[in-house]
Design a protein around this nucleic acid. Structure first.
Lengths: 117, 117
DNA sequence: CTAGTCACTTGCAAAATGCAAGTGAGTGCG
DNA sequence: CGCACTCACTTGCATTTTGCAAGTGACTAG
């Protein structure tokens, strides 16, 4: 894995700087842990992209996949400490969106987290 | 412009959720205002991408281009209030990168802003 | 007249994205 | 057993975005 620079922001953006990764984090934080549950968000992430993001995030150490049943094996995805810490990035992004993009609404699951907006 | 959902995070990511936009914000914050100065960062943004990002950011109301000389007309890019507010997002991203990606170093221009890391 | 700078634009190949359809392992029903 | 259905993906393919290199136009300095 090549690094563009030694800037922490640039390196962080290499891991989480796209339109979907932070939304997956958002959904994991709001308690959606299965592939199907993650698919059901309003934004409608395509299945192949979700599969790819989960793999990348696992490689980057942001999530872990743990089997919640055998036969057939089914995985539940959970944030690692590293992934969970993206909550503060997500919070900053959401706060910015709420302030500057009119018509946006914080999902019910995050209402109390939005007090600082 | 179509909106993926009404979530403030999703909408914000549509505007700034890519590998380059926040780095341009970082460079504008550190006082680099011309096309050339923005090109000179360590990450090496390609010229066409920079031109495209500046256009998008202008359309999104994040930056304004003001001519700093006539003959030939040259523009200096400056953040709007909306764009400057991305500083908090950038800060959260940088803090996360500094904490979780080893070997990263906050650029000198931001050292005092990094106290909360 | 020539070289050089700045701010781009253009062309094109490679990679990422998005959509739809398919697959495989299993469960529940009659 | 046969058929329908679910869940978690994978595959194929068209479109879009990226990245690199080269080119352009306006102008300045020598």
């Amino acid at each position: 894995m090549k690094r563009r620079s030694s800037c922490p922001a640039a390196c962080a953006l290499d891991l989480a700087g796209d339109k979907w990764t932070l939304l997956v984090v958002r959904d994991l934080l709001r308690g959606r842990h299965t592939f199907k549950a993650l698919l059901e968000s309003d934004e409608g992430i395509p299945t192949n992209i979700l599969a790819d993001r989960l793999k990348r995030m696992a490689r980057a150490g942001l999530v872990v996949a743990e089997p919640y049943q055998e036969r057939p094996v089914r995985y539940a995805y959970a944030l690692t400490d590293k992934g969970r810490d993206l909550e503060y990035v997500l919070g900053a992004v959401a706060r910015w969106g709420k302030k500057h993009i009119r018509g946006t609404k914080v999902p019910a699951e995050f209402r109390e987290d939005a007090r600082k907006s």
